[in-house]
Computed example of a mutant assay.
Amino acid sequence: MRSLSLALAAAALAVAFVPVVPAQAAALPAVQFVKIYYNSPGSPDNGANSSLNGEWAQLKNTTRKAIDLKGWTLRDKTSAPDHVYTFGTFTLGAGKTVTVRTGKGTNTSTTRYWGRSGGTFAYIWNQTADTGYIRNPSGKLIDSCSYNNSRAASVNCL
Rank of each mutant, 00 (worst) to 15 (best):
S3H: 12
S5I: 13
S5C: 13
S5T: 11
L6Y: 11
A7L: 15
A10F: 07
A10G: 06
A11R: 02
A12C: 14
L13N: 00
L13W: 01
L13S: 01
V15A: 14
A16Q: 04
F17M: 13
F17H: 14
V18Y: 00
V20A: 15
V20S: 14
V20G: 07
V21C: 08
P22I: 01
A23H: 12
Q24M: 08
A25M: 12
A25Y: 07
A26D: 13
A26R: 15
P29Q: 09
V31S: 02
V31Q: 03
Q32E: 11
Q32Y: 03
F33Y: 11
V34L: 07
V34I: 08
I36H: 10
I36L: 11
I36E: 10
N39D: 13
P41R: 01
P41G: 02
P41N: 03
G42Q: 02
G42H: 03
S43K: 02
N46I: 00
N46T: 08
G47Q: 00
G47F: 00
A48I: 00
A48H: 04
A48K: 01
S50T: 06
G54F: 01
G54N: 07
G54I: 01
E55A: 03
W56A: 08
W56G: 02
W56N: 09
A57C: 09
A57T: 11
Q58W: 04
Q58Y: 03
Q58I: 03
L59R: 07
N61P: 11
T62G: 01
T63C: 02
K65N: 14
K65V: 07
A66P: 14
I67S: 06
D68K: 15
L69N: 12
G71C: 10
T73N: 10
R75Y: 02
D76V: 05
K77T: 08
S79D: 10
S79T: 10
A80C: 03
A80N: 12
A80G: 08
P81D: 08
D82L: 03
V84A: 00
Y85H: 06
Y85E: 06
Y85F: 15
T86W: 04
T86G: 08
T86M: 06
F87I: 04
F87H: 05
G88D: 06
F90M: 04
L92M: 05
L92I: 07
G93A: 14
G93E: 11
T99L: 07
R101K: 15
K104C: 04
K104V: 13
N107C: 06
N107V: 04
T110H: 10
R112L: 15
W114S: 03
R116A: 13
G118V: 00
G119T: 05
F121D: 14
A122P: 14
A122Y: 00
Y123L: 02
I124S: 04
I124W: 15
W125I: 05
W125P: 12
N126S: 15
A129M: 06
A129E: 10
T131N: 07
T131K: 15
T131C: 09
G132N: 10
Y133Q: 06
Y133C: 01
Y133I: 05
R135I: 01
N136R: 08
S138K: 13
G139R: 02
K140Q: 12
L141C: 04
I142D: 03
S144F: 05
C145E: 03
C145S: 06
S146Y: 06
Y147P: 00
Y147K: 07
N148L: 04
N149C: 05
N149A: 09
N149I: 07
R151F: 09
R151I: 06
A153R: 14
A153G: 13
C157A: 08
L158V: 07
